[in-house]
Amino acid sequence: MNPLSPQQVRDLARFVALTRDRELNCSECRDAAGELAERRLAGLPLDTTLERVEHHLQLCPECTEEFRALERVLREST
């Protein structure tokens, strides 16, 4: 494997800066992702749980990839 690229170093620094004592894991994030996507689409306010889902998305590229796909589906289904 290669040494880290500048972008990967930036990612590492960002992850360390944004981490919190309590974080959701991927399956907890997925459980609430549907609600977050619906409320964002409707422009509704987010509660603490959904704010924690957003936080997980900032740290997890795979959940982010899936969340974007879900948002697209919801946008195109309404």
Binding site: E38, L70, L74
Partner: peptide
């Protein structure tokens, strides 16, 4: 959320 939204997140 709507059930279908949840099921879609599972499918994705």
């Amino acid at each position: 959320s709507r059930f279908l939204t949840w099921a879609t997140s599972v499918a994705i």
